[in-house]
């Protein structure tokens, strides 16, 4: 991989105020188009890593570049999907997507087309007039994802987006997410608590250790894309889930 990394942490440290170190000289790099999952015990700073990339929070030391820029300058290339759907309840599904476009400065003439394209992508093209409360948890999350995709990000940051959903819905959305990604290969940073989810989605998993947060082990997931329901039944998938679970346990005991 010779392309310059799209996200690069060099010796990044982070502490909040006078508190303990959250991240200790963290170095990591992601190539364009990679799907990187962050997994680790609570307190390992995985959400903090996303917030740093997003520019919602600034590093205390070290350098962090996003597509060769500061996170703030790269704002137009970033989209964030939070654990909650974070839809505005007073706007319809369509208006929720369009507000993101409007506030990010996308010309109004393009709103309707872009909005319809991403809603179709998450199979909610016919629910544009619905209010968020009329949708199920999984549907809300899909709208949230569509809204992020509407901004055509180069980098998508996902902070446990499917954590609150039931197993079945989560698996369906995992498959959908990969299928959508086939069309436009953004780089993904995906925080999760689920080993199975991390293995299914990523081509690289970073297992983090806590107190202070640091990379414990890096695992490449060589399973071929496209991944489908079949992938979950395959032997290599199960072996990887077992491996990652074991490594996660050592990372957890390293923290204690």
């Amino acid at each position: 991989m010779s392309a310059p990394p799209i996200v690069e942490f060099r010796e990044v440290t982070k502490r909040f105020g006078a508190g303990p170190l959250v991240l200790d000289r963290l170095s990591l790099a992601a190539q364009p188009g990679e799907f990187v999952s962050l997994i680790g015990p609570s307190g390992c700073g995985k959400s903090t890593i996303l917030r740093l990339i997003a520019g919602l929070s600034a590093p205390s030391g070290g350098t962090l570049t996003v597509d060769g820029m500061t996170p703030d300058d790269a704002a137009a290339e970033l989209a964030f999907v939070f654990q909650e759907p974070t839809l505005l309840p007073w706007l319809t599904v369509a208006k929720n997507v369009e507000l993101a476009l409007k506030l990010r400065g996308v010309p109004a003439a393009d709103h309707a087309v872009l909005r319809q394209r991403v809603l179709d992508l998450v199979r909610l093209g016919d629910r544009g007039d619905a209010f968020p409360r009329q949708l199920s948890g999984g549907q809300k999350m899909r709208v949230s994802l569509a809204r992020a995709l509407a901004l055509t990000p180069k980098i998508l940051l996902l902070d446990e987006p499917f954590g609150a959903l039931d197993e079945m819905t989560r698996e369906h959305l995992n498959e959908e997410l990969l299928a959508i990604r086939g069309a436009a290969a953004w780089t993904a940073f995906f925080v999760t608590h689920s080993v199975a989810e991390a293995v299914f989605l990523s081509n690289r998993i970073l297992v983090l250790a806590a107190n202070p947060g640091r990379v414990h082990t890096e695992i490449r997931v060589a399973l071929p894309y496209p991944r489908t329901e079949e992938t979950r039944l395959s032997r290599p998938y199960h072996d990887l889930v077992a491996d990652v679970s074991r490594i996660l346990r050592t990372a957890e005991s390293a923290a204690a």
């Binding site: 919602l56 970033l78 964030f80 974070t86 505005l88 506030l103 990010r104």
Partner: peptide
Amino acid sequence: TDRHLVELFAMWRA
């Protein structure tokens, strides 16, 4: 206002 929504707006640099 919901803290998460405030962050969303910060993300959009509103």
